[in-house]
Write a protein that binds this DNA or RNA. Structure first.
Lengths: 361, 361
DNA sequence: CGCCAGATTGTTATCGATACCATTCTGCCC
DNA sequence: GGGCAGAATGGTATCGATAACAATCTGGCG
């Protein structure tokens, strides 16, 4: 059994980049080292393949000794399976979306699929570019946030012939699978809940741009419901471009109260802006909720910790990720069988906390 | 010029997964459609290659018409360049690290390199697994967080022969490149600054486990400095496993004050725990900073918005990402030329805010 | 007019694994 | 004992692009 000696790893500095040895190490060499064919080595790496336990053991020892690392880029070419799932989120700095990303990776664990993550910065054009970049890697499925895409993006996705899951909202025209909830109805529920507690004069903070469709939906849910309840036209303030920061939440609440000083309760497009608004109010000596009640959306960690704790809508962010990945796996499992394009609704619920406590008033 | 007709895209549902057409579309077919060779099509996709403008235009029109999307997995096999950079962070839900990730992707934009992101959950074994998973994709470089890795991980990285950048701290034994700062010195600076303002009885909240080496370094920086300043043994509380949550910050400050009621100022391993601590104190009717001063680490958005705003160490998270990616690009540029393994120090600074204001006392 | 540099395009081999089919071997059943 | 199923393994073509080199064409210059 003739073999390259296992390379000693002193003086490893400097030769990095050159690599020297690693570069050349291939499955065939492992095979030669063990005295089997490359095909058998390939099989040893997969759990389903038929290789005798003894052979597999010898191969794995050789792999260890030589320091061989499987090359998936070669494998995926011949097997026509890239082993990738692509996911696009608006922002990774937003813990709602990174929870979703966690849900995806956690579900993908042990499936042999890897997540390729990208962030769109809330911009459809950037999304389009990213979709193309992702498709070039031939992902086996793709998870998107929202249902608003450019025409070219839709065309590319359609052509790609892979399962697509849109998340976090219910698109008018779903591409394929959907895992999400109605942002408009969720916000509506919050309005009704607070109205039932006696609140009458509602204000709203959050943009209306096409960039953040979920934000727009929440806003329209707010306006519609305030109208329906006969609580006059809603008082809504826009501020900055999505995502609205904590700081902008603070600025917005000031403008809103300047314009409509008798506002009783302010709903915000997200907990982050709600937090900013609350802190700004406190800084200005207002009491929350005694002088002004404030609520958010998303149930970020901050909302339960904040003093006062923040009333919000809890969204199952992590669950959205898990479900989306699960739908994708289902679809891949089903292979060609047309699994009907389904809409998986995820739950949300109002979480009443100190920031809108009525008794305190 | 004979060509497949551009597929009409009605009734696109249901045949998804089957794909029907997309699957087969290859560079050779685009070439046939245009009447050139596949090689020319390949060249048309790269900006440096020599193709006449007219030919490129015709090719790109065909690409559009047919809906062809480049297949990088095939390309990377023959070019031996995967187009990937791998990056591992402890958690993507932590905005400090997601800022770093943003810095990396932003720097990689337009280089033709794509980021493959993974999170280790602060666990070295998970890091090892991820490193292997990443190396199977043959990344051209890899960015790690911290300098604590398993032996096998180090061996794999060494063998891989690609540039490695460790970030966010200064490892004892760097693998290759380093972009970071001394967490211990940063914390030390914060202690000294607060001591110079008259604070004497220091407390500390933050774990000591090997999981979070940056946290441990901050802690030891704290203890050492308190000692050096002759301010008696530091009062340090551990709580939970990293990452310490806001809630745990609240619990920890309670234990700490129970045990050492006369503590004047509490430093926390991160702004998140500091925020939790502050909110818990307020909930219990203590005033910050009048009754107890509290500081954090990391300068998260929350700290400038919070009321009171939180004294902290500002770290250039985004810059760490940019620099790390830049070092990687340098190394790739240099090719084999041994670019000395360098340590790039990134800045940090104390940001004094309301939560430790001395006058208020 | 002939030749050469540079631009443009084509041909062929190859990257490293896996699919597919063939082959060998073992043990069991009728 | 013959035959056959099933396990274990090997041989070869192939995935879809690109590297490397060859071929062709163009214009300019001596």
């Amino acid at each position: 059994m003739k073999a390259e000696p296992v390379k000693d790893e002193d003086e490893s500095k400097g030769r990095r980049l050159k690599g020297g040895d690693a570069q050349k190490l291939t499955m065939a060499e492992v095979a030669k080292y063990v005295g089997v064919s490359a095909m058998t080595v390939s099989r040893a790496f997969r759990q389903d393949a038929s290789v005798s336990e003894e052979t597999r053991k010898r191969i794995m020892e050789a792999v260890d000794a030589l320091g061989y690392v499987l090359d998936l880029s070669a494998g995926s070419l011949s097997s026509r399976r890239s082993g990738f799932i692509a996911a696009l989120v608006p922002s990774i700095n937003n813990s709602n979306f990174s929870d979703t990303a966690r849900g995806i990776t956690d579900t993908l664990e042990n499936t042999g699929l890897q997540l390729l993550l990208g962030y769109t910065d809330y911009a459809a054009e950037k999304e389009e570019k990213l979709i193309e970049a992702m498709l070039r890697r031939r992902p086996e499925g793709i998870i998107l946030t929202g249902g608003s895409h450019t025409d070219r993006a839709r065309r590319m996705l359609d052509k790609a012939g892979i399962p697509v899951v849109e998340t976090w909202e219910i698109p008018e025209e779903p591409i394929n699978h959907v895992v999400g909830f109605s942002n408009s109805e969720a916000m509506s529920l919050l309005v009704r809940t607070l109205a039932s507690q006696g609140y009458r004069r509602f204000g709203y903070i959050g943009g209306t741009t096409a960039r953040d469709t979920r934000g727009s939906q929440r806003r329209s849910g707010f306006l519609k419901t305030v109208e329906e309840l006969g609580l006059g036209p809603g008082r809504a303030i826009s501020f900055g471009v999505p995502p609205i920061t904590m700081e902008q939440g603070g600025q917005a609440v000031v403008s809103l109260l300047e314009r409509w000083p008798d506002t009783e309760v302010v709903l915000c497009v997200s907990d982050l802006s709600a937090f900013g608004a609350i802190m700004e109010c406190k800084r200005r000596g207002m009491r929350v909720p005694e002088d002004i009640a404030i609520a958010g959306f998303g149930d970020y960690e901050i909302s339960s910790i904040c003093h006062p704790s923040i009333t919000t809508i809890n969204v199952d962010c992590y669950g959205i990720g898990r479900q989306a990945a699960a739908r994708l796996l289902d679809a891949l499992q089903a292979g060609g069988e047309a699994t009907g394009d389904e809409i998986t609704l995820t739950g949300y619920r109002v979480v009443l906390r100190e920031s809108t406590e009525r008794g305190a008033r």
